[in-house]
Design a protein around this nucleic acid. Structure first.
Lengths: 344, 344
DNA sequence: TATTAGCACTCTATAGTATTGAGTGCTAAG
DNA sequence: CTTAGCACTCAATACTATAGAGTGCTAATA
């Protein structure tokens, strides 16, 4: 992208202006607010060029111009100066009462933190059962052959699954199975456990064979039904912030947005995708095929638990977002959450 | 309320008309759609009376009339003929795949079911930890003196709490505590357990005293912090249905509504209140002080688990709701959920 | 006395018109 | 290459006229 220094300056000015006012930017505004020693007419010429290059569009002929997704991408990649997080905001994150309650609450509170500080909507994707390393598992006998399998990770994340056997086991028997499986499976993810189950089922010299066979058969069925590969849980907080954003002052737009939020699959796919990359990532408008929506961007970061990347979190807002403050905010929150999980 | 038979007929006609069209009802409409052998002028006189009695209001002078909360209340109490649920809808409820997954998913899916069938927003209040009867508890040692306490109810509801001890216990020690407490506490609610803890702490002849003391001290603190008395979890599904309701076609109204949804306390208080009554209840508009909102009503029913009322569920929509179909729908869903929980 | 036809009146919603102002693109001069 | 100047475009706003739905009141009627 070979823009002249001056064109870049003007593009930056337009983007910054639009980010702070949400109003289409005219040539006069540029010269007045950012004195570049240049006349409106000149700016107009350059703006016209920038439009041709796909960085700007006009809502209508007699309006100023608005940055495109391409412009935001360019801005973020080549001219964004990320501030370090202001001391005060960092304090706020550190003092936010995240540490109370169980894992669910931790996730939920984190979305609220993200939302409160960004004034946008906060999202957190919880660790996926299939990829969580469990330290302990427990089988609790309920009535009617039903057994509740409870998995606990190092970080205190609890997942559970109902297992329905056609045979009623005593709690004692379950405890034997439980002891055996704990020994066999501790430190594994659900995915790894499933593989181990297949392995064990080959080996019929096992002394728990009959019970285990039953158990594992059911387990296998469960994973066939997609339970092991189940989607991660998605937490959303601060949805109502969306109503304060002038970009979304349109009823139909809002409806579309909320429908998308209710259909969590797409958002989860996107967040899952973000697991593969390092650091903070920004998805602008139509850049991603899973949550493609005019004028909406996501700022996403991965968070770690005991070393590994275990989930992602971030913020959803208008593409017209003050990235220089939101990015460090998301980054810091991800770190803090990671620390909390690891030292929980 | 001594209305003449004819006044009642007209009021009913107006309410039914408004429920189905969402348009203010004029005198001519009443005579045309419900032929009562009466002229518009007569209807006007009666409508004027009904307005004076507080059953109707006019949005403006030259508009028809709209039922007030008082009118809906009267309608529901004295002239609603509740249909039995159509066979087809009952089928739909019974066939809805609620039974998969864990308790959380069950709750979430139930909100979706309610929403899908009513075309409004579904809500389910999960059983409160403080009032859930637990069959089993388990303590899992994590790193750094942290212990995860896991409680399992008969129905397979799992709650967990992090307990932080300033002393590192081995899993063996925990198992001893766990065995003792399971023996001591099984079949109790969290609230009852707390009381029992106080009792046990008096008794220092107990052979587990030192560990238990530690443990219970922390437990006590936790309950002091309100963890035992924690609010029930609220599940909401089908929020976006709100966007399809003409009554809420206003941006500001919508914003207000979503803010109320995010502040779940109020809604929970109301649902909690509903636990005390039997059968299906309807809260119209300003009738309740916790989720008071112009034009919005709730249809709520309690559901049972193994005999006891353990939670509530329902539907939120415009006061202008076809109660004769929504009420049996909510009723049936509550029954089905109860059955699923009890036979889980 | 209760009902009803008739009519004037009220008020919203809709369409049409005029005006304003922001902003552009083009042209010609510097 | 830059810029002043100017005609042009278009959305937003305010104003006006009109149509239509519905009422309340009055006087006639059963």
């Amino acid at each position: 992208m070979d823009l002249s220094e001056r064109s870049r300056e003007i593009l930056r000015a337009i983007i910054q202006s639009y980010i702070s006012t949400a109003e289409p930017v005219g040539s006069r505004t540029v010269t007045k607010r950012y004195n570049l020693g240049i006349s409106p007419a000149t700016v107009r010429n350059i703006m016209s060029d920038l439009e041709e290059l796909g960085f700007l569009v006009q809502p209508h002929t007699s309006a100023g111009r608005v940055p495109t997704d391409k412009a935001y991408r360019f801005y973020i990649d080549t001219m964004l100066e990320i501030k370090s997080l202001p001391r005060q905001q960092e304090e706020e994150i550190l003092n936010y009462p995240l540490h109370r309650g169980d894992f669910h609450q931790l996730m939920q509170e984190t979305t609220k933190l993200l939302s409160a500080l960004s004034h946008y909507t906060g999202i957190v994707m919880a660790p996926k059962p299939a990829e969580t390393v469990y330290r302990h598992m427990e089988f609790v006998r309920l009535t009617g052959g039903r057994v509740l399998a409870i998995f606990v990770s190092n970080a205190g994340i609890v997942h559970n699954r109902m297992i329905i056997l056609d045979e009623d086991l005593t709690q004692k028997e379950l405890e034997r199975i439980s002891a055996f499986l704990n020994h066999e499976m501790a430190g594994k993810t659900l995915r790894e456990m499933r593989n181990r189950v297949f392995q064990l089922m080959e080996d019929d010299k096992n002394k728990y064979t009959r019970l285990l066979m039953k158990f594992m058969k059911v387990w296998q069925d469960a994973s066939y039904e997609g339970e092991v590969e189940a989607e991660a849980e998605l937490f959303v907080g601060g949805l109502s912030e969306m109503f304060n954003i002038p970009d979304f002052k349109d009823y139909e737009k809002m409806k579309e947005l909320f429908l998308a939020f209710e259909e969590k699959h797409m958002l989860l796919k996107l967040l899952d995708l973000a697991m593969d990359a390092e650091g903070v990532q920004v998805y602008i408008g139509s850049e991603n095929k899973y949550f493609e929506m005019q004028g909406i961007s996501l700022v996403v970061a991965t968070y770690r638990g005991e070393g590994n990347v275990i989930g992602t979190l971030g913020v959803i807002g208008p593409s017209r977002m003050p990235y220089n403050t939101v990015i460090p905010l998301v980054d810091c929150t991800a770190r803090v959450l990671g620390r909390l999980i690891s030292e929980r």
